[in-house]
Structure formats: C-alpha cells, structure tokens
Write a protein that binds this DNA or RNA. Sequence first.
DNA 1: TATTGTTATACTCTATAACTATA
DNA 2: TATAGTTATAGAGTATAACAATA
Lengths: 161, 161
Amino acid sequence: MSSKSVNPLELTPAGRLGEASLRRVLGYQLAQARIVTDAIFDAEVASPLQLRPVEYTVLTLIAENPGGSPARLARALAVTAPNITALLDRLEARELIERKASDNDRRSQVLAVTRKGAELARKATHRIVAAEHSALSLTPGEQAILTELLHKVACARDSSR
Amino acid sequence: MSSKSVNPLELTPAGRLGEASLRRVLGYQLAQARIVTDAIFDAEVASPLQLRPVEYTVLTLIAENPGGSPARLARALAVTAPNITALLDRLEARELIERKASDNDRRSQVLAVTRKGAELARKATHRIVAAEHSALSLTPGEQAILTELLHKVACARDSSR
DNA sequence: TATTGTTATACTCTATAACTATA
DNA sequence: TATAGTTATAGAGTATAACAATA
C-alpha cells in the first residue's frame, strides 16, 4: 500500500516498519534477535522441560562450576542475591541441585547439580543448540563470529566497574 | 586461588565461571551482551531522559513511520496489544506522540510524534549511539558485521510464522 | 468472522530494604 | 566493617480474557 520506496534492509522483521536509526542501536538489535531465541527456548525447553531461561542458565553454570557459590552466580548473571536464593530454592525443591555448607567459610554455600540436574541441563542444551541451528540458518563461520563479537560486547562489563 | 587451569575464553565476563556449553547457546550470549547495553541505556537515557527501553523504541519507530498504527507496532515488537495501549497512553500524556482516527478504517489509529517527541527520540538515539561506541570499543567493521548477523537472526522470525 | 483498540487482571521478573550469621 | 544468604515487599514488564466498534 505504501507508495514510498524504503530500503528493505531497514525494515523490522515483522510489521514492516522503518528502523533506520534503531539499526545503529545495539541494544535494539539485541532485543529483536532475542525475540527469536526466546521463542526457540520456549518451544524447546520452557514448556517441555519446565525450565525457565534463568533457571536453565543457573543450572548449567552450576553443572560446569561445581563448588561455586550463590554469590558468584549473582555476579555472573548480574542478578541480585534475593533472586538467586529463590531460584536455587526452586531448583533444590526439584532435586536438580544441592546446597552444602562450605568448610572454609561458614557463611557460604557450595553448589552442585544432582545426577538428575546434570541430565536435564545436558538435554536442554542439546535441544536449544539443535533448534537454534536449524532455525537460524547461520553458517558455522557466522555462528563463530557472532559468538565472538557478543562476547566482546559482554566483556565491556569488566572495564566499567 | 583456583588451581585448575581453565580456558579464559570460556569464563563469564563477571564472576569468572566456566560457561563452555552456554557459549554454544545464542540466547545466553544475547542475554550477557544485553547486560551491558541495558546498563548503557539506563545511564544515558532511562534516568536522564525519563524514557524506558520500550518507550524509546516505540517513540523512535513512530518517528520513522508516521501514519503507522498501534497494531503494526505490536507486531514489530512482538508485544501484545494491551501493552501497546498503555505505552501509547503514557507517551501521549507526555505530549510526545499524537493519536488520530484513521480516515480509511475507523477502527484504526494513525500515530505521529510531536515536535517534542521527535526531538527527544533524536537526542536519545544520539546519546545511546555515542555511549555504545565509546564503551564497546568495536571497530566500525565489527559493528557492521554484528548488526548484520543480528538482523539475520531477527529475520528468522518470518519463516517460523 | 476477523481485526482494532480498550479495560481489567494476573503472573513473571527483578529490585530494594531489613535482617542474621560469619569473616 | 564487609560479605553471604535469607525474608518480605514493591515495581516494571508482559500476558490472557472479555469487551466494543468496525471491517
């Protein structure tokens, strides 16, 4: 209907709206990309495995870092401590993780996944990776570059502290 | 303290946790990157200009697409219609946008920014782009590649509908 | 029947404040 | 004093359901 000719590279993926200035805003680009990955996560993990995004991330980080503490998780994810507590409560109630008292520091907790938790994390990762691969149609090279650039962005957090 | 040698490329930017399997999950990489862009947005726009992320995006999309409707905004942002209504209420109350009845379709509304709204959107974009540029230290080439790859990811939304 | 926009409502996510125990 | 973890609470973000007006 619109008679105005617009560069098709500057339209929103849905709704066909011009977004020229927003294309220069990385935060916006990330939000648009996450619409897609959120949908994938929801279809592949959230509903079938009953794991929410943060729960999946926390479970996987614990699986890869046995002996870690809630405080370190909070820093890694930029989430406040009270949220971590509630999150761990849920995972522990489902017997996906275990909290032990630390030997060195009696304030601190030592986290580990149960066998059930490790299995669930592995299954979830497998499903997400497979689904992202088939839905996104990025070449392995593009995937690698994207991961590297996003990590570089994420690391800007260090210098601003 | 840790005696185990870990590939430093596979650690979370903060908290120093191993994240090898999560590195393969694009949704996680996006979330980590957004911690940084969210902080930039908060410092540069949210507090000083009193504009929340979605408000900024909506305002800018309206500025670039005069004559658009709330329904198209909802599709572009994957946000439900009731949220768009509340969002537009706030922006209209601050006299940043105007809602007019459509001539063709009397159910529909025609959106446009006010002069004040256009100015605010321009100022916000300028501040974000400048801050992202200085904080992220990506080369122009990296910026371009990142934008292109994220857009490609965002466009996967089309094919899954 | 389907779509546009609205109201009312509820749920999730995440934050702050205040507290206890330990370092 | 500072840190680890908890509890209670509040706010922002976004969803569904039900509705009115129009196509």
